[in-house]
């Protein structure tokens, strides 16, 4: 564990807590993409298959349980509890256009042609594009609530911090995972235009409004 990875995990934790607070306080899921949350649930389920079989640390297990638990709770809030406020018309990204290519790529490009490794690779590739339905929804509605902007900033920062973690681990431990790094770079790049809007607008107290 290193400071970059710890900050990354805390940023990821903060993003999920911000999202849950937004939904619980406003009792609304307006502006939140249910499809992205379903993709995140798929990512965590595919990635944490070893949750009950290999114990790494209390921290590792607690975080995995928290991430899996909260993402399914988020889906429950979107599609059941606060269903009336879910904007399905704007959450129209065709996720099959993500899942099929990502699934195919996981079969072709992986570290080892073994079931667990391919499923893990699938979760890494899927996570890098899982935010697209959410960003697509914001571009369709033309604006994002400030709290949603904070959620996205924390979520985007988490993988950017993981990139720093991988740089550190390369020099400190000689650890290098090309698949995770490339997917992490793609994932962080997808947030760049949002980061720009966040820093130039939200930091000055304005709302984010994209040219619809």
């Amino acid at each position: 564990m290193n400071i970059f990875r710890l900050c990354g995990d805390m940023s990821h934790l903060a993003a999920i807590i911000i999202l849950l607070l937004k939904m619980w306080k406003t009792r609304s899921v307006a502006g939140i993409s249910g499809k992205s949350q379903i993709l995140f649930a798929t990512v965590f389920t595919a990635r944490y298959l070893d949750l009950f079989t290999s114990f790494i640390s209390i921290y590792n297990t607690c975080m995995k349980v928290f991430f899996i638990g909260t993402v399914y709770f988020t889906i429950y809030l979107i599609y059941m509890k606060f269903k009336a406020t879910y904007d399905s018309n704007h959450d129209s990204f065709r996720v099959e256009f993500l899942i099929v290519p990502v699934g195919g790529l996981a079969f072709l490009v992986n570290h080892e042609f073994a079931p667990l490794e391919i499923i893990w690779t699938f979760s890494i590739y899927l996570e890098s594009v899982a935010i697209l339905p959410q960003l697509f929804m914001i571009s369709k509605t033309g604006e994002a609530e400030t709290i949603t902007s904070h959620y996205l900033f924390a979520l985007g920062s988490y993988r950017a911090l993981y990139l720093c973690n991988w740089i550190y681990r390369y020099y400190a431990e000689g650890f290098f995972d090309l698949i995770a790094v490339v997917a992490g770079v793609v994932q962080t790049i997808l947030y760049c235009d949002f980061f720009y809007l966040y820093i130039t607008k939200v930091m000055k107290g304005k709302k984010i409004s994209l040219p619809a």
Partner: peptide, 10 residues
């Protein structure tokens, strides 16, 4: 099998 398949990052 799954036991020695370890990914230590979240």
């Amino acid at each position: 099998d799954i036991a020695e398949w370890v990914k230590d990052e979240l």
